[in-house]
Simulated assay, not measured.
Amino acid sequence: MKSSEIIDAFHFRHACKVFNAEKKISDNDFMTILETGRLSPSSFGFEPWKFLVVQNSELREKLKPVTWGAQGTLPTASHFVVILARKQKSMRYDSDYITHMMYDVHKIPEEQAEQRRSFYQTFQEKDFKLFESERAMFDWAGKQTYIALGNMMTAAAMLGIDSCPIEGFKADEVEKLMAEEFEVDTEEFGVAVMVAFGYRVNEQPEKTRQSMEDITQWYR
């Protein structure tokens, strides 16, 4: 892929607030978008995320009163994704989830896995001080979901598909809804961010950014 094509995709991408409700993303294209999320990097390779693809119109309606940043996208998006981040219960070094990731997913030999667990414990306790609060651990996991979010939106733009990242929601009320209507274990997961995908109906606004000189400092 040429450099110019990559930059063109980034110019194409914008926060699309309303989509063409009649135009749907093909199954193949959307699975490609999801796959870029699944293949995204994460700290220690522990994948602290889950993707809820909300296509059910009734569930979207229930999300709408507590998701003020998606008033135009929830009714019109071809696909709407709630990205969950894992909480301290499953991200701490001695959790069943971390054991599962090392043994069942990464297939690390026992001795090597326990060395890695010890290193991960030091990282959590001392390097990043993630046990200072439940929120510290959740925010650390949530930051990683944004890597997947960015990759999914970029992949969509390369396919000519629009997207809109959404942080405009009432976190406590959305989490309550996740437990009651989506059967999410909110002891283990919290909502990090949402993202809508589809095809635009309005003209793209002019893209504004600071200059490269303003945001970059080189040390040669």
Rank of each mutant, 00 (worst) to 15 (best):
E173K: 14
F123H: 11
I108Q: 03
A15V: 14
C16S: 07
A171V: 14
A179G: 05
Y97H: 04
R135Q: 09
V82T: 12
R60A: 10
V105Y: 06
D139P: 01
Q210V: 12
Y146P: 04
L59Q: 13
L159A: 06
R135M: 01
E203C: 03
T76K: 06
P75H: 06
E111K: 14
A179D: 03
A15Q: 04
A171F: 07
A21H: 10
E167Y: 03
T186H: 01
D94K: 04
L159S: 05
P75M: 10
S4P: 00
N28G: 04
T99G: 00
F169S: 01
E22D: 14
M101P: 01
L39Q: 10
K126H: 13
A155Y: 01
K23G: 06
A21N: 10
F189L: 13
Q55L: 11
K24V: 13
D127K: 13
D139C: 04
P109N: 11
D8E: 15
E61A: 11
F169T: 00
M194F: 11
D162H: 12
N151K: 12
G142S: 15
P165L: 03
A171R: 13
P75K: 05
Q71E: 08
M153Q: 12
G37F: 09
V201C: 11
Q121L: 12
V82R: 04
E203L: 06
F138M: 08
Y146D: 08
M31N: 14
T154A: 14
D185K: 11
D8N: 14
Q55T: 13
M153V: 15
Y146A: 04
W68L: 13
F80I: 09
P205M: 12
T36H: 12
P109M: 05
P205C: 09
R220I: 04
E134V: 00
F80M: 07
L177N: 08
D27V: 03
T186N: 00
E35G: 01
A21W: 01
A179F: 04
V105I: 15
P65W: 12
D162F: 06
P48K: 07
N20P: 03
L130E: 05
S211G: 11
E58Y: 13
R220K: 13
F12R: 09
P165K: 07
D96G: 01
T208V: 15
T36S: 15
D27F: 03
S118V: 03
A171P: 05
I215P: 05
R60P: 01
V174A: 07
S118M: 07
A9G: 05
E35K: 15
T208E: 10
T154V: 12
